[in-house]
Nucleic acid binder design. Structure first.
Lengths: 191, 191
DNA sequence: TTTTAAGTAGACAGACTTGTCTACATACTT
DNA sequence: AAGTATGTAGACAAGTCTGTCTACTTAAAA
């Protein structure tokens, strides 16, 4: 059975539900409709908090934007590494992994690529986070290559091709066609 | 010597300077700062026209957005095809062509990828134009491959890899590194 | 017990958004 | 000579943007 939910069961936990709700709402709306398209008022209404609460946790919208990107990074990386592991880290089956993501009805491309395009020139921190995200993604691919005894040096190329695939699907090219193209690149790289 | 600048020297020409000025200004600002970040008032001030003139030529901002994309498509395709021809359509030298673009201090990625990310879900026409743009780009690459006796079938893969390179540079990855990665993909595809 | 953190409800400021409107000027075409 | 297209200058509407503010409440920590 579960432990008693006394005060200090989870040390500084129960930090606040409002802050989490705001972040989750921001994630949904920023990713789905874009950052500039999502006003603070909408975030407040959707997350069910008041303006004071909102600004107490995130003193400016920019703070929330960065928090959104950090959260998105953690979430996406967790999904990607777990999905790769499920395929025994066989990069040949990368298209299976991506197929899952690309076919999601809420798919709207890469949050980092989108954010850089939207506000990268105004908020340089966004580009910095985005670059780090791509670096981490590449490292994960390198680890997979290593595990299956393939040349790690290819990780950068594979990672770059994935980005191309991400944007293609976002523009509306059929997932099947994009994944076939990506598969061709993978085969040529790995053979 | 030049012909007299009489009325009908250029038939329906001199259509209007204001319209062109608006379009050119929109191209600069939309590409540089983003579409949503660029207000109608700024476009009007920068292009030196009045509100009535602006709305007479472009009844809504959306009309101007689409005009911008069409103009950008023509401009970019003209540059790309001319640049490819200068390299005798040797796809192996594609990185030289892209290096020129990526190194431009005003480089801000692909206007189409950016636009889809910013307003693709709100203005579906944008995604449609973007997809067509990528298709045309791919066809140009296919033509280059054909001219140098290489398999046209690779055009889609090359085109997709280019998109990956475009977004990488935009996020701030060094041009040199990105082009080396792209070159690796090209070599593996073509060998 | 008193302080601190977290919450609610909503008015308000000031800037910026897209788009409409009036009133007038100029110049080319029919 | 009259009509049409194009232009100028700027007020105005109605909404949205981010961010601040007052006033009050609740609960945990020091």
């Amino acid at each position: 059975m579960h432990a008693m939910k006394t005060k200090n069961d989870m040390p500084p936990a129960k930090v606040s539900d409002a802050k989490t709700r705001i972040l989750l709402t921001a994630h949904d709306l920023f990713y789905q409709n874009g950052i500039r398209a999502t006003g603070v008022d909408k975030l407040i209404k959707e997350s069910g908090v008041t303006k004071v609460t909102f600004y107490r946790h995130y003193p400016s919208k920019n703070d929330l934007i960065l928090a959104f990107l950090h959260y998105r990074h953690d979430k996406w990386m967790a999904w990607f590494s777990q999905a790769l592991e499920q395929k025994n880290n066989q990069i040949e089956r990368l298209t299976d992994v991506l197929s899952e993501w690309f076919s999601d009805s809420d798919y709207r491309g890469c949050a980092f690529i989108n954010s850089v395009g939207e506000i990268g020139s105004e908020l340089p921190e966004v580009s910095k986070i985005s670059l780090k995200h791509k670096e981490d993604m590449t490292n994960l691919i390198a680890a997979s290559l290593l595990k299956s005894g393939q040349p790690e040096i290819l990780s950068e190329a594979i990672s770059l091709a994935i980005d191309g695939a991400i944007t293609r699907v976002q523009s509306g090219q059929p997932v099947k066609k994009v994944l076939e193209t990506l598969q061709l690149i993978l085969e040529k790289l790995l053979k």
